[in-house]
Nucleic acid binder design. Structure first.
Length: 300
DNA sequence: ATCATTGTTCTTACGACGAT
DNA sequence: ATCGTCGTAAGAACAATGAT
């Protein structure tokens, strides 16, 4: 148990630490110290009060400290508002200056890189759950942003809205989603959604894709596709890919399944499209030259 | 006006390789 | 073993353009 003198000293120490922290930027160690001190002072005072050991002078000191901190809190509150107003005005001004600068034909100003890779786990997860239609709405993007930044205290590693937009654009292109769309769905996103549904159904997927498959924009325009038939629980005669694309050859179906799996892997673990393509080339070359040798065909 | 796509540039990490 | 340099892949970001 602390003596009255020690309690008073802790109170003053507490006030000094808080003032100091407010005047400068606190690091984690300082923050932790203030937190511990707050607990210690609070517990000691309430204990002493409960046991009737709290002296009048300590009590008065405690009240004075609280009043000073209250006043300070009010002042800081006002200051913060002012700073926010100034920041907002400055941002507007800077934006307009930068716009003018860019429009005068100067070279592009690339933002300084903060990290080599983004905190993309939320975006990857969303992409994988919506492979049939990886186009998040504004609300979706805001939710992804909030989820990604929820536990990040360091400002410099927090995602920005535009980074989410760009990540989806780049990932659709790099993971092979766009080329798959063109190659197998004739550029039709509805067909792509159906194919995605069928492939995931074949693989015994969790059918989480139902969310986008029956998404709000689609639901508003009901169509007699394989997808809507499924939603109405009218199961087609065939299941999986043949139900959606009845006229494709087995070879094409196999190729589609392979490319789909590669696409999923790229999204899940990173793109690495160039290494992947290179590996494919090596494997293909090795395979073809091996079979040529088996047939006795002279190489080169 | 807003959002997606495409082509492209730029930054960073990393491996190979030679010099010490 | 440890550097410094160089080339390259991956991925983030930008600009122009098109679609709705």
């Amino acid at each position: 148990m602390l003596s009255q003198e020690e309690v008073c000293q802790k109170l003053l120490d507490f006030e000094f630490s808080v003032l100091n922290a407010l005047a400068t930027d606190v690091d984690d160690v300082q923050y932790e110290y203030i937190r511990e001190l707050t607990t210690l002072v609070g517990e000691t005072l309430s204990q002493q009060q409960a046991q009737g050991e709290l002296s009048l002078s300590t009590l008065q000191l405690g009240i004075r400290v609280r009043e000073r901190l209250d006043q300070l809190r009010y002042v800081l509150h006002e200051q913060r508002h002012q700073v926010q107003r100034i920041q907002s005005d400055t941002n507007l001004e800077l934006t307009s200056i930068l716009r003018r600068h860019i429009h005068t034909g100067s070279s592009p100003v690339y933002r300084e890189r903060r990290d080599t890779t983004l905190n993309a786990s939320f975006m990857r997860d969303w992409f994988l759950r919506n492979l049939g239609h990886p186009f998040p709405t504004r609300e979706d993007k805001q939710a992804i942003l909030a989820g990604s930044n929820a536990r990040i205290r360091d400002r410099t590693t927090r995602l920005r809205y535009n980074q989410v937009v760009l990540w989806f654009i780049n990932t659709r292109r790099r993971c092979g989603w766009t080329s798959f769309l063109r190659k197998y769905a004739n550029g039709n996103k509805d067909t792509m959604a159906d194919i995605a549904w069928a492939l995931q159904e074949e693989q015994g997927g969790t059918h989480e894709t139902r969310a986008w498959s029956a998404g709000p924009t689609k639901a508003a325009t009901p169509k007699t596709t394989a997808r809507s038939a499924k939603e109405a629980n009218i199961l087609p005669a065939k299941k999986g890919l043949p139900a959606v694309l009845p006229h494709i050859s087995e070879d094409t179906a196999v190729a589609m399944r392979t490319e789909w799996e590669q696409m999923v892997e790229r999204v899940r673990y990173g793109i690495k499209e160039r290494i992947g393509d290179w590996m494919d080339e090596v494997i293909r070359d090795t395979h073809s030259s091996a079979s040529e040798e088996r047939r006795g065909t002279p190489r080169k």
